[in-house]
Each structure stands twice: as C-alpha cells, then as structure tokens.
Design a binder for these strands. Sequence first.
DNA 1: TATATTGCTTGCGATTTGCAAGTGATGTTA
DNA 2: TAACATCACTTGCAAATCGCAAGCAATATA
Lengths: 135, 135
Amino acid sequence: MIYEPNQCPIRFGLGVFGDHWSLLIIRDMMFRGHTRFQDFLDAGEGISTNVLSDRLSRLEAQQIISRQKDPSNGRQVIYELTDKGKDLLPIMLTIFAWAEKYDPKTRVSKELAERIRTDLFGARDEILATIKQSI
Amino acid sequence: MIYEPNQCPIRFGLGVFGDHWSLLIIRDMMFRGHTRFQDFLDAGEGISTNVLSDRLSRLEAQQIISRQKDPSNGRQVIYELTDKGKDLLPIMLTIFAWAEKYDPKTRVSKELAERIRTDLFGARDEILATIKQSI
DNA sequence: TATATTGCTTGCGATTTGCAAGTGATGTTA
DNA sequence: TAACATCACTTGCAAATCGCAAGCAATATA
C-alpha cells in the first residue's frame, strides 16, 4: 500500500467530506431524504446559505450529488445522491457503529451496530497487524 | 471545531475527525506507526506546528490518543492510539474501499477493498431502504 | 399586477489557518 | 561544565475562511 499524498485513500476521502458540513449534507440526503436547498437550511444544523451553496457546488463537481431543476416547479432545484454518493453508506454505517459504542447519547439501532461490528470491528487488531506489514 | 451533543452519530464523528487534519494524524498513527510530534510534521502533509499541537490536544481530550513522556528520553513525547482510536479502523477501511472504487490514483490492496465491499457495499440499497424507514 | 418563494450572491466583521520565529526543557558534545 | 542541538510546543501576524444579515433574479401564486 502506497501513501504518496495523492495516492492516499484517506486524503481522497477528506477531499470530499473533510470539512464540517459535507458529511452532514450527505447524511441528510441519505437518511432524511432531503433534496432541496431549503431542506438543508431547515435541518437545524445552522449552516449558512453561502456555505451551503459552496458545498453543494463542490459535491456536484465531485459527482457525489446531482443537480436538476424540478420540472413541476421552476424555482426549485432537486439535489440527489449519485451512485458514488450512495456508496458512502458503508462509511456512514461504520461511523454509526463507532459512535454507538463510544457516545452514550448516540441513538443507533443496536442490531445494526452489532451487525457492522461483527463484520469489521471484531478482527480489528488482526487486520491492523496485517495491514501494517504490507505498508 | 464545533461539538454540540446530539443524538446523531455523524455529528459525534465529525466532532472527532470533521476537520482537515485529525484523520490524517490518526492514519499516520494507525498505519505508519507514528508516535512523535516530529513524525507528524515529517509526514509530508504540510501541517503547521500550531495546528498539529492543537489537534493532538483535542484528540487527547477526546481520548482518541494518549500522551506520555518517553521514559528513555525526557524531551520526547509518545502519542499512541487508545482503544477508542483503534476502533476507528473500520471507518478507515470503508474509506479505503470507497476510494479504491472511485479514485483511479488510490492504491489499496484490491483484496482488502473487495472484502470490505462484499461485507457492506453489496447490500447498499437494501440497507438504505431499511434504515430510512427507521429514522 | 402585486406579493411570496426559492436558490442563490454579496458585504463585512469575526474566527481559523499557515508561516516564521521564538521559547524552555532536556540531551549531547567538547 | 560550557556550548550547542533537539524536541515539543507557543507566539505574532497576514491571509484565508466563516457566520450573519441583507440583497437579488427567476419563478409561482393571489
């Protein structure tokens, strides 16, 4: 595994969601079905309009989301996750499972968290050791 | 970085790694075995000393890493991942798999990426549909 | 035609960042 | 033991980014 700056998957990921807002926008699209500018503003996170506008542009440029006019209402724009965006689900799920384990306030289905953990958390140290040797 | 206690796991995660540098520091500890201040500076990412200092403090405060003086060299400090920090591995791995799929430059073992994907990516739309109903 | 809604953009002060230059504690060398 | 080097920071400051409020153009509704 090579970690040249531009060959690093973590850096690539950070380029997409390495800021305070992008992951929240993706979460709202993924789990809350948000599709419009106003939806994100109303989500209660306190994002400002200029930053929201900027993040939506970036996410569109990175093909995480698509942007199209609502044919039935010319004022509205519909934002939707692309396949690339939907494929961020496993990342979301592992964050769910981790938060469920360490944040007493987080409310995630224990069933879901358990499923994810048995898939990946269980072999943590093993996997870590294996990976380190291949770097 | 803002952390407002919520019941959302994504917000909880963002409180830990929702900035440009924290995940890179964790990556360096997890996969490159970095333990010292200078290690992170030399990693070639261009983090500045004041920001590095700040992020190490925050990560320690959040119990993602531990901080102790090197008993064999009083000038040096040893930073290490806690269990809470090591448990971020699945999040790292899912980022790996996602980047391997979408970033042509990312170099990750295809075997590893495939394993992660078959565990979690395969049932993406199914899982998404199930989760949406429960949120 | 007048007004409301929607998705932005603009202006500006406040916060955060990157960069360079310290600083103090500790270790090494002559 | 005196001089110097190393290490983990801290400080000061200009520049970038951010939050907030206001404004704007296009479209819809009354």
